Amino acid sequence: MYSIENIHILVKNTVDGRIRFSKEYDDKAFFELVEKRLGGYFPMDWKAIHIEKSEYMGSDSKRMKLIAEMPVAVSESGSLLDPEDIIIRDSQLTDKERWYEKMATLAKRARVDVESIDRYTEDEIKTVFRKFIEEMTSCPEVQPVQRLRIRKKAKVQTDSEIIPAPGLFYWVFLNPEIMKSMILSDDEQRRIGAMKLHDEGWIPLWGCALSKRQANLYLRAYYPNYVAFEPVKAPTTLREACEFVNDNHRHHISPQGHKFSVALSDGNKIIGVAIIGRPVARWKDDHKTLEVTRLAVKEAYPNLCSMLYRSAARIAKELGYDRLITYTLVEEPGSSLKAAGFEWIGESDGGSWNSNRRKRVDRHPIGRKNIWEIRFG
């Protein structure tokens, strides 16, 4: 999986935030632990931070300084904990048992009695746990780990009142290279994929926030120097845009030319581009129409597509064009286009550019496509 030597550090989400273990693993020891002792999967709440050995040895590494700020797991006597016994035990627990342990931990701190695990369903345990956590966020001026102030036993809600588990938690990510933070819901984190975020330099620090408000409180308390991530507009050339498309587009190579291109940056490097040119279909080229011929983004960042479409439409309007069109595959929902104000106007027949007179190799999907447009009144 890794072509260079890495150091791996195990971390775990707890009710107080993310903690790291002092034990370090090289590639061989790490994959032996995961594949042979854990069956190839990390249990819930466990993650690993992967660091190149050269970066790990660098004392001035911003990423290493960030990791060093994470609390280290210690026992009640103050000795460093070995993660292996804990993670192997956690891997043998059911989801219900894991949730019950979390609930019981908070209940013990609040001096609230809870019944045995057999008396609850898994959804009821999650609901009681959420009730405890909500009490933690009820006092914003207090530090996150000090917000638990419960005086009475939590009431278990009925089945009709239970809050569904999907989207229950929010994740806190930091990127030391650009000193930015990002908060994602469970659903957003799963849709993007942890490895895509990791590849872009985003480190997951906490995955137990019950609301964006709580996640923001956590960031203000522990990482005040980090600001919320926002994509920024960036100038680009056709060559740069084409290189980005060739590296990141899912099913197309770059076009031959453009009228203009727009780009978005994370403050350090390009993370999304849109290339706008004359309509590919000649009969639509009326000198008043432009087409978004390519759009590509880094999939680790949500909502970039709609931002690029809106920028392209705004520039096309300022240049005096009447409308902007684009095409998507029929299996793509077009959510970003709808958000940018485009309307679906039909389907194209698709087809190949190859012919007897002019032989071509199709390097893109040739099936039917949705047609979208935005008109400028």
Rank of each mutant, 00 (worst) to 15 (best):
Y2T: 09
S3Y: 05
N6E: 13
H8L: 08
N13V: 05
D26K: 07
K53G: 05
Y56L: 04
K65D: 13
L66Y: 08
L66F: 09
A73Y: 11
A73V: 04
E76V: 06
Q92M: 13
L93A: 05
D95A: 11
Y100H: 00
E101S: 09
R109Y: 12
V114T: 02
I117M: 13
R119F: 12
F132W: 04
F132M: 04
E135M: 08
S138C: 03
P140G: 04
V142N: 08
Q143T: 05
L148W: 02
Q157E: 09
I162R: 06
I163V: 14
G167I: 05
I178H: 01
I183Y: 06
D186V: 01
Q189N: 12
M195T: 14
M195N: 14
K196R: 15
H198T: 07
L205R: 01
C208D: 12
K212Q: 13
A215R: 01
Y223D: 00
Y226S: 04
V227C: 07
A228G: 02
K233E: 15
T237F: 09
C242F: 04
E243R: 01
N246I: 02
D247R: 10
H249V: 00
H249I: 01
H252R: 04
S254E: 14
A263H: 02
A263Y: 00
G267A: 03
N268H: 12
I270K: 03
G272P: 02
V280D: 13
D285M: 05
D286T: 05
L290C: 06
V292E: 04
V292P: 00
T293S: 13
A296N: 01
A296L: 03
V297N: 06
V297Y: 07
P302Y: 08
S306N: 12
A313G: 10
A313I: 04
L319A: 14
G320C: 07
T328R: 02
L337A: 11
A339V: 00
I345A: 09
I345V: 15
S348V: 02
G350I: 03
G351A: 06
R358E: 15
R358G: 11
K359E: 12
D362W: 00
K369H: 15
